[in-house]
Design a protein around this nucleic acid. Sequence first.
DNA 1: GTTCCGATGTACT
DNA 2: GTACATCGGAACG
Length: 189
Amino acid sequence: MAHALFDQSAETVARALIGAELEVDGVGGVIVETEAYDVLDPASHSFGGPTARNAPMFGPPGRAYVYRIYGLHWCFNVVCDAGQTGSAVLVRAIEPRTGLERMRERRGPLPDAALCSGPGKLCQALGIEGSLSGAPLDAAPFALRLHVQPPELVQGVRIGITKGAATPWRFGLAGSRFLSRPFAIRAPT
DNA sequence: GTTCCGATGTACT
DNA sequence: GTACATCGGAACG
């Protein structure tokens, strides 16, 4: 059985991943922004049922779902379940902690706050590509360590979507300067 | 600070 | 052909 954490709803996992540390081949940092998507959500890639692209969303939890967006960027998701396949959490921003030099080789000589402050940016910085879609997150090149103390969260609507735009399934680390964009609302913890 | 736009793979009408 | 879970640069105020 997969790690119990990922066998929960996308919203629960999206909250739990804030403050967790993600590395790919030793390059990464602390997750500071996530969004939840599930199969009942018209904004989700899984909404229309399984396809070749979204197949990992319908597989076991605790794996990666990586897809290409706008023809040039990659986006990284953590597959969830909670008895309902087709759910996943988009990782939108990371606070860089390890492998900053490798990140700059891939992204350019940018300030820390610009290296991983967006879903496409963090995939470029960590070297996440489509070949990793479906890969388990508890094995190399991935490393995912959960936080001990739950951090203070902020919550808001998701970014860049038209369908399901009112659903407040975007979560962030309160006060972080590494977000893709600011939040307006504070979430209960 | 803001808005506009081009890049261009993949899914879908 | 159109839309899209994006980004970076140009133009403008």
